[in-house]
């Protein structure tokens, strides 16, 4: 465990030593701020137009927080490749992989360390949004439970992207290639939903089950369904398993 933490710390340190962390967080904060502001504006318009007594008042959770965080999943799609692309590719290119693989560490410790490091940066990124949410709590009275579950959902969803990103990065020495392939794969996992609609009801059910973002819906409604949690966890484990296989086969090939 000490080794895992050492690696994770080193990963986090290297994100913040290079511009990556700042670019990622800045980009994320900017887009999030934009979505947030425009949804607030829309929410305000809707509320003002409603005449009192014409129906239930707009629910801030359903009408604002839910949609905002669904947008977050799109932003994550764009920034996550920047976080994961260098994890393995850069170590292989610069030769530091030789240091890691000749140290008394297991492959699993290295993989988990890198995974937690990336997850740490992602968590910092999400933490930026706490400011916006704080404002909502200050001036409105949203329910806290759906807010908490949406963060849990986002964390799980991000972890899936990270484990897939680690695997892709482990396949190449070139971090740019890793980044682009990762982005393409994430995009595919995202649009797969739309494709599903052309396959009829069963096709859609199957395909939307595969889509990473689709599983986020219930979390945004304040529901923690084990079905979704298990989906995310198995996705993560599978990604990390593939990474381990990839590192090991690279070692045999030399």
């Amino acid at each position: 465990m000490r080794n895992v933490i050492t690696i994770a710390r080193k990963e986090l340190q290297s994100y913040f030593a290079s511009p990556i962390a700042y670019v990622v967080i800045g980009f994320f904060a900017l887009l999030f701020g934009y979505f947030f502001a425009s949804l607030i504006y829309w929410f305000e318009q809707q509320s003002l137009q409603m005449t009192p007594g014409s129906g239930p008042p707009l629910n801030i959770n359903q009408a604002l927080i839910g949609p905002v965080f669904m947008n977050v999943s799109v932003i994550v799609l764009f920034v996550m490749p920047m976080i994961t692309m260098r994890t393995y590719a850069e170590e292989k290119r610069s030769g530091t992989m030789e240091l890691l693989l000749t140290s008394p560490l297991t492959d699993v410790q290295i993989i988990l360390g890198k995974f937690l490091g990336a997850l740490g940066l992602y968590a910092v990124m999400l933490a930026v949004t706490l400011i916006h949410v704080g404002v909502l709590f200050l001036y409105g009275n949203p329910e806290w439970k759906p807010v908490a579950t949406v963060y849990l959902g986002l964390l799980l969803m991000g972890a899936c992207f990270i484990s897939a990103g680690l695997f892709i990065s482990s396949l190449t020495k070139n971090q740019i290639v890793a980044g682009m392939v990762t982005f393409a794969v994430f995009l595919l996992l995202w649009v797969i939903n739309w494709l599903g609609q052309s396959f009829g009801p069963t096709g859609q059910a199957v395909i939307s089950h595969l889509s990473i973002t689709e599983h986020l819906d219930d979390f945004a409604r304040g529901i923690i369904d084990t079905k979704h949690v298990i989906y995310y966890l198995s996705f993560i484990v599978f990604g990390l398993f593939l990474t381990a296989k990839s590192v090991d086969s690279e070692r045999w090939r030399g």
Binding site: S14, A17, S94, G95, T96, M97, E98, L99, T102
Partner: peptide
């Protein structure tokens, strides 16, 4: 075992 590979395995940002 201590190992110094052909190119020293350094992290440039550290």
């Amino acid at each position: 075992t201590g190992y110094l590979p052909e190119t020293p395995p350094l992290y440039p940002d550290m």
